[in-house]
């Protein structure tokens, strides 16, 4: 690997909420094609970290260099940066006032300035891929959680982002719907989409992740390949965490 395929260079990223230090110095690189899975106990800063990557949280200090430019710089247009960084939320956050099709086309039309017909064509093709083209005219309130999340993924992918962020994409789902959403994410990973996934699905982390970040108390306590983290964790806290989330019962 050479230096050119680095998407994100994160340098000493810190984030405080008032007196609370949520991120206490995160440094890592995210390369093209990587599937970085972030795990760790609740309150460890996983979500804040991923939200900093598309600037939904403004870092307190540190640098986030994306494709060569520091996007924490005031001169960088935040909305331009976000076009290239897709995000999927735990609570889906589909636009409630828009139909499924419009959820996907709105940013194509308003952000990418695509003509309506072209936007619709693209959206329908993407919906077909996740098997939801028959829901195009439905409204979010008429869908199951799994369907909503698959559409949220389509909505983000429609902008052809360079990287996708998933913030606990299956945590708000009923258990029987987790599989259908993970499958869509896994398919994207197979196609080579770069992604950062915060999740509690350890099976998924192990199977799909190319690199695992274990976060604890606002820092990356340990990182490595799935084999390294799951088979032979070096850090005491990683071992402790894994023993709690794996082999429950």
């Amino acid at each position: 690997m050479n230096g050119n395929d680095v998407l994100f260079e994160i340098r000493d990223l810190k984030k405080n909420f008032g007196a609370l230090e949520v991120l206490r110095g995160i440094s890592t690189d995210i390369r093209k094609g990587e599937v970085v899975v972030v795990i760790g106990p609740s309150g460890s800063g996983k979500s804040t970290f991923i939200r900093c990557l598309n600037l939904l949280e403004e870092p307190t200090s540190g640098q986030i260099i994306f494709e060569g430019t520091d996007c924490t710089d005031k001169s960088v247009k935040t909305h331009r940066h976000r076009e290239k960084v897709g995000m999927v939320f735990q609570q889906f956050n589909l636009f409630n006032n828009l139909s499924v099709l419009e959820n996907v086309t709105i940013s194509l039309e308003k952000v990418k300035k695509l003509p309506a017909a072209q936007a619709k064509e693209k959206a329908m093709a993407l919906l077909r891929r996740v098997g939801l083209e028959d829901k195009a005219d439905a409204y979010p309130s008429q869908l199951s959680g799994g369907q909503k999340q698959r559409i949220a993924i389509v909505r983000a992918m429609a902008l052809d982002p360079d990287v996708m962020l998933f913030d606990e994409p299956t945590s708000a789902l009923d258990p029987e719907m987790v599989g259908e959403v993970l499958k869509v994410i896994q398919d994207l990973a197979r196609e080579g989409v770069t992604m950062v996934v915060v999740t509690h699905e350890m099976g998924f982390a192990r199977k799909v992740g190319t690199r695992i970040l274990f976060m604890d108390e606002g820092v990356i306590a340990e990182e490595g390949t799935p084999e390294e983290i799951f088979e032979a964790p070096k850090n005491e806290r990683t071992r402790d965490f894994l023993s709690k989330v794996i082999n429950v019962i």
């Binding site: 939904l56 976000r82 960084v85 939320f89 956050n93 589909l94 902008l159």
Partner: peptide
């Protein structure tokens, strides 16, 4: 809703107006 709109590349104004 606003966060999702922003994450899709909309500006604050667009998020307000369309969503």
């Amino acid at each position: 809703q606003t966060e999702a709109a922003l994450s899709c590349g909309m500006t604050q104004g667009q998020a307000m107006r369309y969503i």
